[in-house]
Design a protein around this nucleic acid. Structure first.
Length: 482
RNA sequence: GGCCCCUUCGUCUAGAGGCCUAGGACAUUGCCCUCUCAAGGCAGAAACACGGGUUCGAAUCCCGUAGGGGCCGCCA
């Protein structure tokens, strides 16, 4: 059978960066082997699941370019599937109804904990009368029948008391659990919803999932799930548990460490291919290679090169990769991407040759699209604002004669081209015996307001003669008045 | 506490018993380039958690120890 993987987030918040990495591995694995990738929403928690989260997760998946072949399926729409499987288990005596109340259970758990013990369900309802009479028999008075149907119960799986459960993990090898560690856990809640472990198994079975690739926080669930497969008589899929992503202090990555939501990275000006590249390399490697296109990842990704140890999320490396992608992507595409960021700053922008020139000049100084938009403001605002230190240092009386001859020479220029500008600057520095920097810096401040920008001729070229002269004149009057 | 997982430079990692004087990348330091800042180039500092085995030989295999992490719900 061909490979089928799935990504199954629970919609209780944004798509976490760690979830995104898992999704990438699942997607890559499916694509590498020419299989199918299925998206499934685990929304059986009625109180915590939200529509907004679902929308955001889908949005993030699309942004990352992780297209799915089937789904998104929702567990909440598959209740009857779970229930029929529970029925089957009840009929075959592999599961039983439990009438213990959550309060009772909680009290027993507390008591065990206070004695320093782990609480495991002791099987109180395991041998109750209920098993012998699983269904309200025909002919009961309607009153009694509805009483039985309405009395609330959960359903527990009857688990083996001795033996061991073995997980063959594609990444970690054999992991063995003692059956004693696993109690008769609940597979269907009082509200009729399946519990997570049960729903996962039923879904993976009915969706013919061949490889379950997920976070290693699920390792402890795996023996329980295997027990469900066995009770139902189904074959288990292959399991592969990927290590988690940690924060800089080596604890589970959380908001404390910075942004953890995937779409937050879009807002911070990251390119999806950079994030995917970064995340794929977190826990997976291919020799010494660091940069991979999506196609290359698909071609080269296998579980063989996935490491076992948890990885610390390193924002600097992501930033570096993002800068790399910004520098290497066609300028026109960067231009398109940067427009919303410029608009957010209140600039009117259109995708034209000028914008592309701006991209070409600024891209290698920007590590994110936000950086870019910030560095580009002097190309869009009317009035240049001088930075405090910059004007103090460079807009001085010594700059006046330079500015004045510059205005002269630029005005009389036939062609306002970069070689011509260079010629003029050379004339000035030769006449005055200056270094280029002595001219370029004051001009830079006059044109951009700061001391950092692309090459001065590029800036002049983009601004155009009128703006350049206008801004130099403004600097002249600023110096004269101060 | 119980169970499970993990352990090579600060970080991501290469490493499948001799190729290791442990390689690459980010970050970091210095130099070069240079109109500023970047980008780029060159050079440097920086790691096999510890202790026992096995072996002629161990970062690689085994066993302990220590440290870190995860899970222990009618949450997913």
């Amino acid at each position: 059978m061909s490979v089928r993987t799935r990504f199954a987030p629970s919609p209780t918040g944004a798509l976490h960066i760690g979830g995104a990495r898992t999704a990438i591995f699942d997607w890559l694995f499916a694509r590498h082997y020419g299989g199918k990738f299925i998206l499934r929403i685990e929304d059986t928690d009625q109180t915590r699941s939200t529509e907004e989260s679902i929308a955001e997760i889908l949005d993030a998946m699309i942004w990352l370019g992780l297209d799915w072949d089937e789904g998104p399926f929702r567990q909440s729409e598959r209740l009857s599937v779970y229930q029929s499987h529970v029925e089957k288990l009840l009929e075959t005596g592999k599961a039983y109804r439990c009438y213990c109340t959550p309060e009772e259970l909680e009290a027993r758990r507390k008591k065990a904990q206070s004695q320093g013990k782990v609480y495991r369900y002791e099987g109180k309802c395991r041998n109750s009368f209920d098993r012998a009479c699983p269904e309200p028999a025909e002919g009961l008075t309607t009153g009694l029948k509805s009483h039985l149907e309405n009395s609330s119960f959960a359903v527990r799986l009857m688990t083996p008391e001795i033996g061991s459960i073995v997980v063959e993990d594609l990444i970690r090898g054999t992991i063995t659990f003692d059956a004693k560690e696993i109690d008769d856990f609940i597979i269907q809640k009082t509200d009729g919803f399946p519990t997570y472990n049960f729903a996962v198994v039923i879904d993976d079975v009915t969706m013919n999932i061949t490889h379950v690739i997920r976070g290693d926080d699920h390792i402890a669930n795996t023996p329980k799930q295997i027990l469900i497969y066995e009770a139902l008589g189904y074959e288990t899929p292959k399991f592969a548990h990927v290590s988690m992503i940690l924060g800089s202090d080596k604890t589970k990555l959380s908001k404390r460490h910075g942004a953890t939501s995937t779409v937050a990275y879009r807002e911070m000006g990251y390119l999806p291919e950079a994030l995917v590249n970064y995340l794929a390399r977190l826990g997976w490697s291919y020799g010494d290679q660091e940069v991979f296109s999506k196609e290359e990842l698909v071609e080269k990704f296998t579980l063989d090169n996935v490491g076992k140890s948890p990885a610390v999320f390193n924002p600097e490396k992501l930033l570096w990769l993002n800068g790399l992608y910004i520098r290497n992507k066609p300028a026109e595409e960067i231009a398109k991407l940067v427009i919303p960021f410029l608009e957010k700053k209140g600039f009117q922008v259109t995708l034209d040759e000028r914008l592309i020139k701006i991209v070409e000049s600024l891209r290698e100084r920007a590590k994110t699209l936000v950086d870019f938009a910030e560095a580009a403001d002097y190309f869009f605002i009317e009035e240049v604002k001088y930075e405090e230190g910059a004007k103090k240092k460079f807009l001085t009386p010594e700059a006046l004669p330079i500015f004045e001859t510059l205005i002269d020479k630029l005005s009389s220029l036939n062609d306002f081209t970069i070689p011509e500008m260079q010629r003029i600057f050379n004339e000035i520095i030769e006449e005055r015996g200056l270094k280029l920097v002595k001219v370029a810096q004051p001009v830079r401040v006059a044109l951009t307001g700061g001391t950092v920008s692309p090459g001065i001729f590029e800036v002049m070229d983009i601004l155009g003669r009128d703006k350049v002269i206008e801004r130099i004149k403004k600097a002249v009057s600023y110096i004269s008045n101060n």
